[in-house]
Simulated assay, not measured.
Amino acid sequence: MQDSEATAIRQRLEQLRLEHQDLDQAITRLALDPQMDQLALNRMKKRKLLLKDMISRLESRLIPDLDA
């Protein structure tokens, strides 16, 4: 992997982590509201899981391949 590609991946990871954190905080606040639309809350939770998966995939791309 070239340095420019690794840098781009790290930048994208930072963006995704920030979005994940923001979404987590929003979900926590909204879950306390009994008037909250459950469908919207579930969509937010699914988006959060998708972000987590995307983060994991990008992190694994940064791990160097080891020749066995």
Rank of each mutant, 00 (worst) to 15 (best):
Q2C: 06
D3N: 07
S4N: 09
S4P: 04
E5W: 06
T7K: 03
A8Q: 11
A8W: 00
Q11K: 10
R12F: 09
R12S: 04
L13W: 02
E14D: 15
L16I: 01
L16P: 02
R17E: 11
R17S: 05
L18I: 07
L18H: 13
E19V: 04
E19L: 06
H20A: 05
H20N: 05
H20Q: 09
H20M: 08
Q21G: 00
D22T: 12
L23Q: 01
L23N: 10
Q25L: 03
A26I: 14
A26C: 01
T28C: 10
R29M: 00
L30T: 01
A31R: 11
L32E: 13
P34R: 09
P34Y: 03
P34S: 09
P34Q: 03
Q35K: 15
Q35A: 13
D37L: 06
D37H: 00
Q38M: 05
A40D: 14
A40L: 14
A40C: 03
A40Y: 11
K45V: 15
K46P: 00
R47N: 06
R47V: 05
L49V: 13
L49E: 15
L50D: 14
L50M: 12
L50E: 13
L51E: 06
M54P: 05
I55D: 09
S56N: 12
S56E: 12
R57M: 14
L58E: 02
L58P: 05
E59N: 05
E59V: 07
R61P: 00
R61K: 14
D65L: 10
L66H: 12
L66W: 01
D67H: 10
A68G: 13
A68T: 12
